[in-house]
């Protein structure tokens, strides 16, 4: 009831006094997609490209992506760099510390399938998808900042398409 009583105030604020009608789903999805705060989780070479993407030329902020140092404030892990067997439990732990809804981008060959360390390495985890669920894979060694940006835009589109019902089931 409260909202309906206040409606005149809201409508006056819109130019021409109109009304915007939309589904709750769209509002939530838009909000989620446009403020994907990512966890600063860089382990190896790809982290340098992640830094470049966050810095002046590529400007991650314009996608609404701001880095956070703690998992509790983050919506997204960009796993940038090799995950070794020693590091894998830590990644899982960080993932568990994040609040729902949470997402993971696997950046670079290493996080997809071990990358250049697939053969002959005794200590590299061959892909992170058996540690945490991955939403988006970005290939490259390292991926260029443009591909990281594109991957994030695709992720945003994926979020915008999600159904509220699926989201609740998780």
């Amino acid at each position: 009831m409260g909202v309906i009583k206040k409606l005149p105030i809201y409508t006056e604020k819109l130019p021409g006094g109109g009304l915007i009608l939309t589904s709750l789903e769209t509002v939530i999805n838009q909000a989620q997609a446009k403020s994907l705060w990512y966890l600063l989780f860089g382990t190896a070479c790809c982290a340098i490209e992640l830094m470049c993407t966050g810095a002046s030329r590529y400007d991650f902020d314009r996608l609404g992506m701001i880095f956070r140092a703690t998992p509790r404030q983050a919506d997204l892990i960009i796993a940038a760099g090799t995950i070794t067997k020693k590091m894998a439990p830590r990644l899982r732990r960080l993932y568990d510390q994040m609040a729902e809804p949470r997402r993971v981008i696997a950046m670079g060959g290493c996080t997809i399938k071990g990358g250049p360390f697939y053969y002959d390495s005794y200590s590299v985890e061959k892909g992170i998808d058996h540690i945490v669920p991955v939403d988006m894979y970005i290939p490259g060694c390292p991926p260029r900042p443009e591909s990281l940006l594109e991957g994030c835009i695709h992720l945003q589109e994926k979020i915008k398409k999600q159904k509220l019902s699926d989201w609740q089931e998780k």
Binding site: F117, Y119, Y122, S123
Partner: peptide
Amino acid sequence: GYLHRALEKICENR
């Protein structure tokens, strides 16, 4: 050791 990627072992086999 959290980034020990066995580069030296890899080089031996390349």
